[in-house]
Design a protein around this nucleic acid. Sequence first.
DNA 1: CTAAGACCTCAACTAAAGTTGAGGTCAAGA
DNA 2: TCTTGACCTCAACTTTAGTTGAGGTCTTAG
Lengths: 154, 154
Amino acid sequence: MSRVPQHGLPMTLSVGEVARRSGVAVSTLHFYETKGLIRSERTVGNQRRYARAVLRRVSFIRVAQRVGISLADIAAALATLPVTAAPGREDWARLSAAWRAELDERIAQLKKLRDALDDCIGCGCLSIDRCRLRNPNDRLGDDGAGPQRLLVKK
Amino acid sequence: MSRVPQHGLPMTLSVGEVARRSGVAVSTLHFYETKGLIRSERTVGNQRRYARAVLRRVSFIRVAQRVGISLADIAAALATLPVTAAPGREDWARLSAAWRAELDERIAQLKKLRDALDDCIGCGCLSIDRCRLRNPNDRLGDDGAGPQRLLVKK
DNA sequence: CTAAGACCTCAACTAAAGTTGAGGTCAAGA
DNA sequence: TCTTGACCTCAACTTTAGTTGAGGTCTTAG
C-alpha cells in the first residue's frame, strides 16, 4: 500500500484508502475538497495524500449531514477549527456541543409534531381546518382573512 | 372574490386563495399538481378551481416534508386515499398513524445520535477513531482492515 | 369599455449534493 | 517491459424541489 514507518501506521492516506475507511466514494472526497471541507497534500506524482485527521473530518461531516445540516453550514463550522495541524479535543468538543444543540432542537420539533399527530389520530383532525398541527400558533382556522401559517418555515 | 352561496363559504378556491391560505407559492401549487400531489378542476376560462379539501392535502404535504419525507413518498401515501370525493377521518387517521411511525423512528435515531454526542463531548472522542458515534456497530477502529461503516446509510 | 391584477402555459434556471465518463498519468508486480 | 489498477482533471449529467420569466388570457372594479 504505502510506505510505512517502523511501527505500522502509514503516515498519510491515499484517496482510495480514505474512501474505504470512511465509507464515502472517492468522487465524494474530491467533491468535499472542492467545497473546502477537507484538504490534501500532493505527491510528486500529483496524487492526493491525506493526514489521518481527515478521517475525523469526514466522520464529522457525515454525522452532521445525518442530522440534516447542509454542507455549507458544516463547512462554516469546520472553518472555525484551527487551520494549524491537529485540532484538539476542545475544538471537537466545541463543535460537538453546537451540534448537540441543533439536535436537541430538531428532536423537540419532531416531538411536538408527533404529539400533535397523536391528537389528530384520535380525532381525525388532520381533516379539520383548525387542527393545531396545521396551525400551531393557535391562530384561527382557515376561513379567517389572513394567510394561514404552516409549521414549515423554510 | 368568488361567488359565494347563501352562507359564506366559497365553494371552490382559486390557486391564489389556496396559496394565501396554505402559505405555499402559486408556483409550488402548480408544481405539486404536475407531480400529482393535488388536483384541480378548471373553469370555462381555464383557471384552476380547488375543492376545499386541497388545503388538507397541502397541509399534509408540508407537515410530511417537514419530517423529511420526500414528495415522491408523500405522493405514494396520498395515492392510497380514495380518489372519490372526500377522504374520511379514517383515511387521514391511517396516514397519520403511518407518519407517526416514521416520526417515532426518526426521533429514536436522533436521540441515539445525541446520546452518542453527549459521550463525545465528555471525552473529545469525535477525535478518537474508535468513537461509537463514528462506528456505532462496535466494529473496531479505523486501523482495522475493512471499510469503516458510518451511521449514514443513504 | 378599459385597465389592473390574477391567471394560464411552457421553458429555462437555481441550488444542493453528488455521480459518471472521457481521456490521460502513475506505480507495482510478473 | 508491459499491463493492471489506482489516480488525475474537467465537463457534463442527475435528482429534488422548486422559482423565474416571457408572452398571452380572464375577470372585475371604475
